[in-house]
Simulated assay, not measured.
Amino acid sequence: MLGDHTRPEVRLGRSSWLWQRWGMSIDGTRYGHGISVHAKSTVTIDLNRECTSYDALVGVDDMTLGPGTVRFSVYADGARLWRSPVMRGGDAAVPVSVGISGRKTIRLVVEPHRPFDSVAVADWAQSRISCG
């Protein structure tokens, strides 16, 4: 982990590759910021303080060419709080909003729907953790 442990931080040793981006695009709509990951990924975030919600818009990035169907999930302290429908390239972004009060860790997971879908790039656009 990097930082002073007083705010949410990605746990590097327990997370997959991620690309913090500005200007990502899902179904032709551009978003100001977020993270992009491979279709099989886990990003673990230690909250380090009392936080109330996690919000994002998720989808397959427009840079994915060809196949790419994925499913997104949000876990907190090991319990799944939210799961998307199966999403394909060209689908509109789906909003995520989960309460995380009293939680210590959240985990953002993307799973390929079929084995060859692991080449897809998946986006957590407008990704935001709200803390007190």
Score class of each variant (00 low, 15 high):
residue 103 R to K: 14
residue 69 T to G: 03
residue 80 R to G: 04
residue 125 A to C: 09
residue 86 V to Q: 13
residue 28 G to H: 06
residue 64 T to L: 07
residue 99 G to L: 02
residue 29 T to G: 02
residue 109 V to C: 05
residue 41 S to D: 11
residue 97 S to Y: 00
residue 113 H to V: 11
residue 34 G to T: 13
residue 62 D to V: 06
residue 22 W to R: 15
residue 14 R to A: 15
residue 95 P to C: 05
residue 30 R to C: 03
residue 113 H to S: 12
residue 5 H to Y: 14
residue 101 S to G: 12
residue 55 D to S: 15
residue 112 P to C: 05
residue 62 D to E: 08
residue 88 R to W: 00
residue 81 L to D: 02
residue 118 S to F: 10
residue 114 R to L: 14
residue 61 D to N: 15
residue 53 S to F: 02
residue 13 G to P: 06
residue 69 T to M: 14
residue 9 E to M: 07
residue 13 G to L: 12
residue 20 Q to K: 15
residue 5 H to M: 14
residue 7 R to A: 14
residue 36 S to Y: 08
residue 116 F to T: 02
residue 81 L to Q: 01
residue 65 L to V: 14
residue 66 G to D: 11
residue 129 I to V: 15
residue 105 T to W: 02
residue 13 G to I: 06
residue 29 T to N: 01
residue 54 Y to G: 00
residue 21 R to P: 03
residue 55 D to C: 06
residue 93 A to I: 00
residue 19 W to M: 04
residue 93 A to N: 08
residue 46 D to T: 14
residue 57 L to H: 09
residue 26 I to W: 10
residue 45 I to G: 05
residue 63 M to D: 09
residue 123 D to G: 10
residue 24 M to N: 07
residue 19 W to G: 05
residue 23 G to R: 01
residue 111 E to W: 05
residue 18 L to S: 10
residue 20 Q to V: 15
residue 132 G to H: 04
residue 51 C to M: 04
residue 20 Q to L: 14
residue 23 G to E: 06
residue 42 T to P: 03
residue 70 V to L: 12
residue 24 M to L: 13
residue 61 D to M: 13
residue 65 L to T: 14
residue 131 C to E: 03
residue 104 K to E: 12
residue 4 D to S: 12
residue 83 R to C: 03
residue 37 V to E: 01
residue 17 W to R: 15
residue 89 G to I: 07
residue 98 V to G: 08
residue 63 M to K: 11
residue 87 M to D: 01
residue 100 I to L: 03
residue 41 S to C: 10
residue 26 I to M: 11
residue 90 G to F: 03
residue 102 G to C: 10
residue 57 L to D: 07
residue 15 S to L: 05
residue 59 G to P: 05
residue 76 A to E: 06
residue 85 P to I: 00
residue 2 L to I: 13
residue 17 W to S: 15
residue 91 D to V: 04
residue 77 D to M: 07
residue 37 V to G: 01
residue 53 S to M: 00
residue 80 R to N: 09
residue 51 C to N: 07
residue 131 C to N: 04
residue 23 G to V: 02
residue 121 V to Q: 08
residue 57 L to G: 01
residue 112 P to N: 00
residue 98 V to H: 04
residue 62 D to L: 03
residue 45 I to F: 01
residue 79 A to Y: 02
residue 41 S to K: 12
residue 94 V to S: 06
residue 87 M to V: 10
residue 69 T to Q: 15
residue 3 G to W: 04
residue 119 V to Q: 09
residue 77 D to A: 10
residue 88 R to I: 01
residue 95 P to V: 04
residue 32 G to K: 07
residue 126 Q to P: 02
residue 51 C to G: 05
residue 52 T to P: 01
residue 96 V to L: 09
residue 42 T to K: 09
residue 85 P to Q: 05
residue 33 H to D: 07
residue 99 G to D: 13
residue 73 S to H: 13
residue 30 R to F: 08
residue 24 M to Y: 02
residue 75 Y to D: 12
residue 130 S to E: 04
residue 90 G to L: 03
residue 101 S to K: 12
residue 45 I to C: 00
residue 29 T to K: 13
residue 24 M to W: 00
residue 55 D to E: 15
residue 95 P to W: 06
residue 102 G to H: 10
residue 65 L to S: 14
residue 124 W to R: 06
residue 39 A to R: 02
residue 115 P to Q: 08
residue 132 G to W: 07
residue 51 C to W: 03
residue 36 S to G: 11
residue 90 G to M: 04
residue 90 G to K: 07
residue 17 W to C: 10
residue 34 G to W: 03
residue 131 C to L: 12
residue 42 T to H: 05
